[in-house]
Amino acid sequence: MRTIDWVDGAVELIDQTVLPDQLTVLRITTVADLIAAIQSLAVRGAPALGVAGAFGVAVAAREFAGDPDGLARAVRAVEVARPTAVNLARGVRRAAARLDDGFEAVLAEACAVRDEEIAASEAMAMRGADLLTELCGERPRVLTHCNTGGLATVVGGTALAVVFELHRRGALAGVIASETRPLLQGARLTGWELARAGIDFRVAVDSAGPFLLARGEADAVILGADRICANGDVVNKVGSYSHALGAQRAGVPFLVVAPESTVDPDTPDGAAVEIEDRGAAEVTPYSAAVNPAFDITPHDLVTAIITDRRIVRLDRGEKL
């Protein structure tokens, strides 16, 4: 099933905040409700956010027909609903470029964004599985972080699509999924997707990742990205940087799987990216807290970036 789609005049999306206990589909017909879904993480994952942004312009075009000022404000509100993942703003701008051509043109562009992400997942799965077996042997054991499956895209996924493809080939020896604090996207969402696919896995507390790598319990780290900067710095769910350090120390590949839509040549490096802070309430009601949603993995810790179009071996000095 698709994580997000346009169905009978509305956006329909799986509410990721209630998984794995409930499989609930939200039907969204207003910009306010779409922004709420984005900010509450009912829909999340860079490619899925790009699709949500594009569909959001279609929702706005219908809701604010005949009100150009209201339409402009609504489109801008969707674009900035979350600041870190480049796909959201990119999807909005792409669909908004068709506003002068009318609602049907906007919707067609949004559907094209959706279809391209579906195709990208298939391509990344093949490229990533081939590279993993090349680097790690015929049956690698992988450690992954956050959620990078169909829930983060439309179907398939990014890094988790590679895991699914290895499983289909009979070439997967094991999966460790970090729980991913503070909202447990790994334990709740990745665990749900792996279980549905019939893949055996273990959930590990986030801080255990580098130790498990040091103990030889995984042959590679494979994860996604919310933005890949021009120099190869990778912005991803907080905790990714520590896994990269652990992988370097253990001498295992650190692989980033993301579509070309997540590569941002206009952002020179990680220092130029606004890192979203989710606030203390998600962590603790008892004290002040620091709660960055993402961190930045320097490009020199990344073995390779795998997109739907290419493999860039940063460990060999290749450039994006």
Rank of each mutant, 00 (worst) to 15 (best):
A159K: 09
E179F: 13
G66Y: 05
G45F: 05
S178G: 12
A42C: 10
A65K: 07
A244W: 07
D233R: 09
R62T: 05
A177G: 11
W6E: 01
V163A: 06
R114N: 02
F55M: 07
S207L: 11
S287I: 12
I311Q: 07
A244M: 08
A108T: 00
P253K: 04
E122C: 04
A230G: 02
L223Y: 04
A60P: 09
G251P: 07
N231C: 10
T303S: 14
D219W: 09
A187H: 05
I222L: 04
V142S: 00
V203T: 13
E109H: 01
N231M: 07
G246C: 11
G53I: 01
A61M: 01
G149A: 08
A271T: 15
E165I: 12
V257M: 10
V175K: 00
R139F: 08
D219G: 07
V57L: 03
A77T: 05
V312L: 03
D264A: 14
E138M: 10
E217P: 03
T30P: 11
R169C: 12
A159T: 12
A225P: 09
V57Q: 02
L160E: 11
L189D: 12
A230V: 03
G9F: 08
L172R: 00
A108E: 01
P268C: 09
D266F: 05
V92C: 04
D266A: 14
D21L: 15
M124Q: 06
G246D: 09
E217R: 14
R127Y: 09
D219K: 11
I118V: 15
Y286M: 15
A159C: 13
A225C: 08
R44N: 10
L49E: 01
I118Y: 06
I275Q: 13
V31T: 14
R215W: 02
V106Q: 02
L34I: 09
L166H: 13
A52T: 06
A197C: 10
L183H: 15
A48L: 03
F211Y: 13
V257P: 08
L245G: 00
V31P: 08
P253L: 06
A58P: 03
P140A: 11
L41K: 01
N236P: 04
D69Y: 01
S287H: 14
A72F: 05
F164G: 05
V92H: 05
V25H: 06
C111D: 08
V7L: 11
V257L: 11
V154I: 14
